[in-house]
Amino acid sequence: MKRNHVRYAAFVAVLLGVGPGVLPAAASPRTLTVHPGESIQKAVNAARAGDTVLVQAGTYRESVTVKTSGVTLRGVGPRTVIVPPQKKAAPSRKGAIGCVEGGKGICVVGLRNKPVANVTVSDLKVTGFSSVGLWSLATDRLTVQRVRAERNGKWGISQEHSTRGVFRDNVARGNGDAGLYLANTTMSEKGATDSRGLVVEGNALQDNRNGLTILRLRNLTVQRNHMTGNCAGLLVIGDENKPRAGALTISGNQVLHNNKYCAKTARLPFVQGSGIVLAGAENALLTHNVVAGNSGRSPLSGGIVLFKSFVGAVNEKNHVDENWITANAPADLVNQNATKGSNLFRGNFCRVSIPAGLC
């Protein structure tokens, strides 16, 4: 009996971290600080899950790739600026296009069968890249907050083939395509994927081609964003593939004066004066948005517009309820679907609709 008591005491001592059998403690989270003139990438490469790479104020001429789960990359606000390197990057030996070779500023990249998880990027500015300011692929629970993405050639902030992302309180301004671009994939036309609760909240999206583009995604929330000065404030794009884009909530957004002119593309006519556009979407709820002053002569022009996708897929089972929609042209509400009655318009404040009777 005494022998058993001694063994039990030794076991308790090990659990409490005392005695000769002490187990090694888990590594404590670290803060790796980067100063001007030092390499952000070097610190990111050294970071382990739970670590924070803190980038001090200054201008850093590099691209940064994050592939480790649980890492936080944080600046001290818009005074932490990431811009393209002065020297052109040498091609990869394996032929792959990396972050810097692809003209991207920050890349958060996992594998399609093993996403990088719980990465946070915050409190910095990324500007002047030929392609994308911040690009993410194959991530889970990525958080991007208080990032300023300005004057990048294509997208300000983008995400593909990912789940449960959070994009909050960012500024995307003056980018060549979408300020914020969220997609299943841009490489092929497939059915919409389940984002598993992606959140887009409190962002300021201004003077881009589109403020926010959502391509073939389902199960997400877009709320309390401010979109102005774009060609289109918000585009939700689907097609005839199954499942359809949609099953999302768009609420409490301000979509104002998106009257910039953008020339036509292979998929869309010219765009100007478009507030919120659904193209081939289903089961979307648009509620308590303020959509005002969006005016143009494009087929996509108007306050809230239901427009056939470029392959002719119609919008179905969408609810447009209790929005304030005013001073838009050619109309506040536009429903171009051939199928009547499949979308519901209820309790909206508006004056002019196409066809008549939706207000």
Results as ranks from 00 to 15, higher is better:
Asn4Phe: 10
Arg7Pro: 00
Ala9Arg: 11
Phe11Ile: 06
Ala13Asp: 13
Gly17Val: 09
Val18Thr: 15
Val18Trp: 09
Gly19Phe: 13
Pro20Ala: 15
Ala26Cys: 07
Thr31Gln: 12
Thr31Ser: 13
Val34Tyr: 12
Pro36Tyr: 01
Pro36Glu: 00
Gly37Trp: 05
Ile40Thr: 09
Ala46Met: 06
Thr52Phe: 03
Gly58Ile: 12
Arg61Gly: 00
Glu62Phe: 09
Thr65His: 05
Thr65Gly: 02
Val66His: 05
Thr68Ile: 01
Leu73Ser: 02
Arg74Phe: 00
Arg74Asn: 03
Val76Ala: 11
Pro78Tyr: 01
Pro78Cys: 01
Thr80Met: 08
Val81Leu: 10
Lys88Pro: 02
Lys88Tyr: 02
Lys88Ala: 14
Gly98Lys: 04
Gly102Met: 12
Ile106Ala: 05
Leu111Asn: 15
Leu111Arg: 15
Asn113Thr: 15
Val121Asn: 09
Asp123Tyr: 09
Lys125Val: 04
Gly128Ile: 07
Gly128Trp: 07
Ser131Gln: 12
Ser131Ala: 12
Gly133Lys: 11
Trp135Tyr: 15
Trp135His: 14
Thr139Gln: 07
Val144His: 07
Val144Glu: 07
Val144Ser: 09
Arg148Met: 07
Asn152Phe: 08
Lys154Val: 14
Trp155Leu: 02
Ser158Val: 01
Glu160Phe: 07
His161Asp: 13
Arg164Ser: 13
Phe167Arg: 04
Asn170Tyr: 06
Val171Cys: 00
Ala172Gln: 11
Ala172Asp: 05
Asn175Met: 08
Gly179Ile: 12
Leu180Gln: 09
Leu180Phe: 12
Leu182Glu: 07
Asn184Phe: 03
Asn184Val: 03
Thr185Ile: 01
Thr186Pro: 00
Ala192Gln: 02
Asp194Ile: 06
Asp194Arg: 04
Arg196Gln: 15
Val199Met: 12
Val199Gly: 02
Asn203Glu: 11
Ala204Tyr: 06
Leu205Ser: 09
Leu205Pro: 05
Asn208Tyr: 13
Arg209Gln: 12
Asn210Gln: 06
Asn210Val: 09
Gly211Pro: 11
Val222Ala: 12
Thr228Pro: 00
Gly229Ser: 13
Cys231Ser: 15
Asp239Ser: 04
Leu248Lys: 00
Thr249Tyr: 01
Ile250Gly: 01
Asn253Phe: 05
Asn253Pro: 04
Val255Thr: 11
Val255Met: 08
His257Asp: 10
Lys260Val: 11
Tyr261Arg: 14
Cys262Gln: 09
Lys264Cys: 03
Ala266Ile: 06
Ala266Phe: 08
Leu268Trp: 10
Gln272Phe: 03
Ser274Met: 01
Gly275Asp: 10
Val277Lys: 04
Ala279Asp: 01
Ala279His: 02
Asn283Gln: 13
Ala284Lys: 00
Val291Ala: 09
Ser298Ile: 07
Val305Asn: 05
Phe310Glu: 11
Val311Thr: 14
Ala313Glu: 14
Val314Pro: 03
Asn315Arg: 02
Asn318Gly: 07
His319Asn: 13
Val320Arg: 06
Asp321Arg: 14
Glu322Lys: 13
Asn323Thr: 07
Asn323Gln: 06
Asn323Phe: 06
Trp324Tyr: 13
Asn328Thr: 05
Ala329Phe: 03
Leu333Met: 10
Asn335Thr: 01
Gly341Tyr: 08
Ser342Lys: 10
Asn343Ser: 11
Asn343Pro: 02
Asn343Arg: 07
Asn343Trp: 06
Leu344Arg: 15
Gly347Tyr: 07
Cys350Tyr: 03
Val352Trp: 01
Ser353Leu: 08
Ser353Glu: 04
